[in-house]
Design a protein around this nucleic acid. Sequence first.
DNA 1: CGAATGATATACT
DNA 2: GTATATCATTCGA
Length: 196
Amino acid sequence: MKLDLSFYIREDVVQISRELLGKTLCTNIGGTPAEAIIVETEAYAGITDKASHAYKGRSTKRTEIMFYEGGHAYIYLCYGMYSLFNVVTNVANIPHAVLIRGAVASSGTDAMLKRTNRKKLTADLLIGPGKLSKALGLHFSLTGVSLLGDTVWIEDRGIIVAPENIFATPRIGVDYAAEDALLPYRFVAKQDFNVF
DNA sequence: CGAATGATATACT
DNA sequence: GTATATCATTCGA
């Protein structure tokens, strides 16, 4: 069942990050459908979070998507070659977002392998935000697309990640955020989804 | 460990 | 309008 607006507009972005573990991320881009189970997320808590692009309410043409109502995709180009995929949460004008950092392929793997120029399915194909976006076809030009539409969306397939399999750790690659880089806003699901 | 790689934000003229 | 520093990263030595 596709997650609806009420899931995204809640105010606790950290809670949403945790709940996204085990959900299925679906894309239908360029006529090639693909699905993956989310296993790693990071929360970006808007204006109070130095690691967020919207820290202190900074709003620019790039970051304006984060100020939208929850349920939109904020996709942005980093390091010149990798698109990073985020889920916007909370109500309009509160720039909270969840970075999808890793997933496990569950369907449409042929298309993913083709996009990433690989021959064989490996466990780390979708681990890492850059690789995940590339494999699923999430180009940064798609930023702002609604997750309630039929291009990119998230479904609840009834997969439950046990609390003892969820680990909270500091975020990756945000050392510039000083003390906020130490916040335990990253969530990893350590569970065998048996996709091989 | 370090290069690749380009849009974007910011600080200038 | 133009210049330059800066990245929510990855891959190959």
